[in-house]
Structures are given as structure tokens and as C-alpha cells.
Design a protein around this nucleic acid. Structure first.
Length: 253
DNA sequence: GGCCAGGCCCCAG
DNA sequence: CTGGGGCATGGC
């Protein structure tokens, strides 16, 4: 099994994160308060300059093993791995993931990106003239439901307030088993099963997580009738991301 | 210019 | 516990 190079485009625009821009071949965002900018060809040297980026891009992830395992399960996954085997699950900041996926409900990715930018611009620390970090919980601790509604966050505004108030529970998650962690996260208003799984996958790298959104429901009915996420164990999270991206970019057929 | 979006809350049965 | 209406907003 050949080792897949990182598919930067798919990794950054597959709907697991919402803060990256690509203009004229340049990828740009703020990661953990640090401005990050690189072109495709200089990706590896960008990683070398900042060791924390290696963790962010999950360069130590078990993709060779995971891809081999998933490829052998069935033809659809084999095809998905060939196409998207370089898609990595990022190690994102859990609070940022919490907020982003509360925003994601009954929403589309383009607008989630807009709302992300709005929060960063309004509450995040500036890293240069034009770019702001995504806000920390402490940056938004005084924001009210009305503030968020004025910013265009809609019916999710009160959920954001509750999430900011309860953000400390994120620190308990790493020590909990999956079901307990999910249960705890769902005590935050606006966090249900799907958003909870997203937080555990994208914020805590829990590979048992298998977010079931409308796309994945179609995927399971069409391609995996009668099966559930345990079929993909122990790489359910990775399989979910490949299949989600597959369905969204190329349809269900 | 409607339709719909990486769901969840809330309230009936 | 299961099902269905309602929800803010703007991209398409």
C-alpha cells in the first residue's frame, strides 16, 4: 500500500473546518493564534518551520494503515481511498470546533464560513491588518444573545451563549469514554448527536465518531444498508470523512 | 424568488 | 421513544 501524500485541498475544504482561504494558490488561515500561509509546493517546508502544524495536519496519523484496512472492506471504500486517501482529519481547537458545528445546523457550508469570518472579525484577536484569529471563549464571554443575533447568527445565538458559558467542560472530555463524553457535550444547548460526534472527531480525534448528517444518512441507506459505523471500525471517523466527501463531490450513484 | 442547508428543540401522542 | 413543525439567514 503506497503512502498517500496529504491532499491539502480536500483536507481544508471538505467541511471539517471553516477558516481557511485559498487565493491565487495560497492557503491561509490562523491556527492556534498563529498566522499560517503557504503554497501547495511549500507545504512540507511550512510544516518544518512550525512543529505544531505537524500535529494540526495529523502528520503522525495512521493513514497508511487506515487506508489499507478500509480499502479491503468493499469496492466503494476502495474507490474512496484511491480518490481521497490523502484527506487528513485535522487536530483542531475543541472550542472552535464546538462553535463551528453549533453554527452548522440547518445551514450550508458557504454560510458557515461567512459566520466564522464574522465572529473572527468581531471578537478575535488581530494577527495583522486584515486577518483575525477565531475568538477564544474568553474573547466572547461578555457577548449576549442579542449581540450574536445582530451578527447574523440567527436562532443559534442562544446556543452560542450557552456553549461559551460551559466551555470548561471540554477539558473533561479527554478523560472520558466515548459515550460519556458525548453525553457531557450534549448538555450544551444546540449540541445533539450529530454535532457531538463532530466535536469528538474534529476536536478530540476520536476515531469512533461517525457524524450522521443528511449526506451520511443517504450514504448509509444507498451504499451500506443494514450496516452501522461499527462496520468501519476502528477507522469509522476516517471512513465517514472519505464517504461524506465522496458523496458531496461526486454524488451517490 | 423560492428552496434548502454537515440539526436541534420542543411538544404532542 | 418516536415523529413532525419551527427555526434565522443568505447562497444558490
Amino acid at each position: 500500500m503506497k503512502d498517500f501524500p496529504v491532499d491539502i485541498e480536500a483536507t481544508l475544504f471538505c467541511g471539517q473546518c471553516f477558516g481557511w482561504q485559498k487565493e491565487g494558490g495560497v492557503f491561509q488561515s490562523v491556527v492556534n493564534g498563529v498566522h499560517v500561509q503557504f503554497e501547495e509546493e511549500s507545504f512540507l517546508s511550512a510544516l518544518a518551520k512550525d512543529g505544531r502544524l505537524e500535529h494540526y495536519f495529523d502528520m503522525d496519523g495512521l493513514y497508511a494503515e487506515a487506508n489499507e484496512h478500509l480499502s479491503l472492506l468493499d469496492p466503494k471504500l476502495s474507490s474512496a481511498v484511491r480518490r481521497f486517501g490523502g484527506l487528513h482529519i485535522l487536530n483542531q481547537d475543541p472550542f472552535e470546533v464546538l462553535i463551528c458545528f453549533i453554527l452548522s445546523q440547518n445551514n450550508n457550508i458557504a454560510r458557515i464560513r461567512q459566520m466564522y469570518a464574522k465572529l473572527a472579525q468581531t471578537y478575535g484577536k488581530a494577527v495583522n491588518d486584515t486577518l483575525h484569529a477565531f475568538p477564544l471563549a474568553s474573547d466572547m464571554k461578555n457577548a449576549t444573545e442579542e449581540d450574536f443575533r445582530k451578527l447574523g447568527m440567527g436562532f443559534r445565538a442562544p446556543y452560542l451563549v450557552d456553549a461559551i458559558q460551559k466551555q470548561a467542560i471540554l477539558q473533561q472530555v479527554p478523560s472520558l469514554d466515548f459515550e460519556k463524553a458525548l453525553e457531557l457535550l450534549m448538555t450544551i444547548r444546540g449540541v445533539g448527536p450529530k454535532v457531538g460526534h463532530c466535536i469528538l472527531l474534529y476536536g478530540f480525534h476520536r476515531m469512533e465518531a461517525f457524524p450522521m448528517d443528511t449526506w451520511m444518512q443517504k450514504v448509509m441507506i444507498t451504499w451500506y444498508p443494514g450496516k452501522d459505523s461499527t462496520y468501519f471500525a476502528p477507522y469509522a471517523g476516517i471512513a465517514q470523512q472519505y464517504l461524506f466527501h465522496y458523496a458531496r463531490t461526486e454524488g451517490l450513484q
